[in-house]
Design a protein around this nucleic acid. Structure first.
Lengths: 151, 151
DNA sequence: TATTGTTATACTCTATAACTATA
DNA sequence: TATAGTTATAGAGTATAACAATA
């Protein structure tokens, strides 16, 4: 039978593990320098790809960033012609974001590469262990999502 | 029975969840501005607290950082008198790191605060779910630790 | 020559504050 | 007046390259 883990132990594990994995993610994205996308850039591209025409605010909310931070982040993507930024005709205060063809291509390639690198790591686990990782991550996502009650 | 999760699904979940949790961690540490420690600073303090007298290289290795990055990070901690940096008499190329009393106090306080914030989030889970999170994190740590075979 | 660390430089991420434009 | 976004400014984190000091 599994031991009941204390909240504190779990918190400690989070504090140790999440920065570690984050650093590995950054490192792997950086090494694939052809793409040269940072993790936040990559996530933003992914969001815009799924929600074409989303506003800057929607993207900021999704990523848990302030508007200025998102604005700057998007600046970089627009400068590289990966994202198109256009005023919304219905409300000209708003900005709509869409992927350029180049952005979509790069996103897809980067996604496949990131997945491949992670898959290497994850292949060290048994299928059952991967289930456990997946399950744990999904639970975490539930309690850390921006619109969750404890946020 | 649990479904066997594909490696790709698991990779995707990682890519989505880890940056999310990381952002929440940073945000919570930032809000407790009394301490004003960043996540890497906090982790470094924790490492030096456990391994008093450790070298800069050891700390860099533990955190998965380059030496220059670690050197700069420690600069900040030394400037705030949280860490003492002294040459090792046995090998004067080396530097030994130790916590100052102030550093230890701050570390302990910050640790309690971080734990309390995380505990709030984690309390939304059942004990069984926390076990699952803990288990998943431990597996992840195993495959992302700096000295692991796939690194 | 090899190892440990520091300095110089550059870029990204992120925030807050102040501002502009539209509603 | 309220909302969406941008600009200005600042500080941390991180890297690579070049350097200094010690072994």
């Amino acid at each position: 039978m599994m031991p009941a883990v204390t909240i504190d132990t779990c918190a400690r594990e989070l504090l140790e593990t999440v920065p570690l994995v984050m650093h590995a993610l950054r490192g792997e994205m950086r090494r694939h320098r052809a793409a040269g996308l940072s993790v936040p850039q990559f996530r933003t591209l992914g969001f815009v790809g799924r929600q074409a025409g989303a506003s800057l605010s929607a993207a900021a909310e999704h990523m848990g960033l302030t508007l200025p931070s998102m604005s700057v982040l998007v600046d970089g993507l627009v400068a590289r012609k990966l994202v198109a930024r256009a005023p919304d005709p219905r409300d000209r205060r708003r900005v709509t974001l869409t992927l350029t063809p180049r952005g979509r291509t790069l996103l897809e390639r980067t996604y496949r590469e990131a997945e491949a690198r992670l898959a290497e790591r994850l292949s060290a686990l048994s299928p059952g262990e991967r289930d456990a990782v997946q399950h744990g991550l999904r639970l975490l996502r539930g309690i850390f999502e921006p619109d969750c009650p404890a946020a």
